[in-house]
Design a protein around this nucleic acid. Structure first.
Lengths: 247, 247
DNA sequence: ACAAAAGTGTTTTTAATACACCCATGA
DNA sequence: TCATGGGTGTATTAAAAACACTTTTGT
């Protein structure tokens, strides 16, 4: 975190809620924080990936840098969704000690810019994450976190849910090619409700941007499903603001 | 802006896009900035209402303070919608001079937390605004602004449009009692399209939170319209997340 | 042959859209 | 009596929701 030669701006940080989807579960990438405080007390808990921005660093860039350092991935879906600046958000002794020790600055108050990111969990980026002391944690089983990071995750999840209802972003969490059932499970897990498979397929397949591949599943003990891919170009062409309003 | 005795945090500011609706137009409240730079050059332009936060001040509070100082209003619809932190966002000589002169600090880089607010323009708060060097400007006629405030307004307007499609917030811009035609005009102006009056009424009146008053318009040279009010309690009770998704 | 998930159609209900005339009032 | 904007109803189309069986594969 405290890379020498990079001067940080100790007033502003970015935090990333990095979502992944694997074994039919929605996951977040959390950093294991282990540290011995000045009193000799052991800290061992989790926090969101994040960092202070450096002098003259753009916030979006700081967020994508954090993401890349942790997963090795570039050009990933990454959106700001809120900022958190409660004066009391850094008030635990443990958090203050940790900040002072890791940054070498006397940290007082930090406003953080929160981003959420959607990534396709693969072995590669998973290994990368583990090396960096990070772990994919099931969203249902997030432990107590440092700072106000539990609030940030809860908030990020709400944004994800809202966006998922209005834009085709589910694909960001899946591999290049995927089967429809995977997509449906993803929707079910994120929205927290069961969906009728016939209606789901009808709705999804109606959109032109779902492209069926020739390849099918193989080695499965049931009727093999066709693979699909998401065609971003077709989507960009066809998307239109709906004028209806709902409430 | 530089109130003595109040120490500012020169790294973080809040900016408010304050929307109002009057004479069938969507307005924003802008501050007239007049200042003579160190070179003797006259600055005369507009900026968004905003301020640096003070040490230990909550961001939401800083925003509502700004709003109250300008309009005298408390407990107003006020939502964070984005942050702006491009390193180059404060790069005009004019802006830098003005900041240094008004704050007494050597300002380097500022991340701003952007809020949008919906208020019911009345004579009272309008007078108040004028006294504070602010003016209600038609959204279509916003002049060139200081800093990146044009971007912030454009962004705020998009958020307003999106939210207006999904939540009944139009009422915030109207007086306590209003006629349906006013509400429809408000939707038309904000969404930028004409709406069929029969369909609009059907849709609006279907919702239980529109309460018809006994009072009608008077003194109008046509069939007088009934006044309505928005019942926030009824809305809160009935609101439910729609599970459908659209894209 | 059996288990397991893929894939498919129809009906019903609800919401969105399109469209034109009469009504109450003040001037 | 006329000009003005308020207020109403119906038919069409589109989308959402409810619902159950046949197909293909590996074991």
């Amino acid at each position: 975190m405290n890379v020498p030669g990079r001067e940080i701006n100790p007033h502003i940080s970015v935090d990333c809620v990095i979502f992944g989807f694997s074994t039919n579960q929605l996951k977040v990438l959390l950093i294991k924080r282990a540290h011995t405080g000045p009193s000799g007390k052991r800290i061992k808990d989790h926090k969101l990936p994040g960092d202070f921005i450096t002098i003259n660093e753009d916030l979006d860039l700081a967020a994508s840098r954090t993401l890349e350092e942790l997963t090795g991935l570039k050009d990933i879906y990454l959106q700001q969704f809120a900022f958190f600046g409660r004066p009391g958000r850094i008030s635990n002794r443990v958090d203050i000690d940790w900040l002072n020790a890791t940054t070498g600055h006397e940290i007082q108050r930090v406003v953080t810019a929160a981003y959420y990111s959607l990534i396709n969990i693969t072995e590669t980026n998973s290994d990368f994450a583990i090396k960096n002391n990070a772990a994919w944690i099931d969203i249902q089983q997030v432990p107590d976190l440092a700072f106000d990071h539990d609030t940030i995750i809860a908030n990020g999840l709400k944004h994800l849910q809202k966006t998922l209802r209005n834009e085709p972003i589910g694909f960001e969490l899946l591999p290049e090619k995927f089967i429809i059932r995977e997509l449906q499970s993803l929707y079910e897990v994120i929205l927290g409700c069961a969906l009728d498979n016939r209606n789901f397929r009808k709705k999804i397949l109606k959109s032109k941007y779902m492209v069926q591949l020739e390849e099918k599943q193989s080695g499965v003990a049931h009727k093999p499903a066709y693979y699909y891919r998401f065609d971003r170009n077709i989507y960009e062409k066809h998307k239109k603001e709906s004028l209806g309003f709902n409430f």
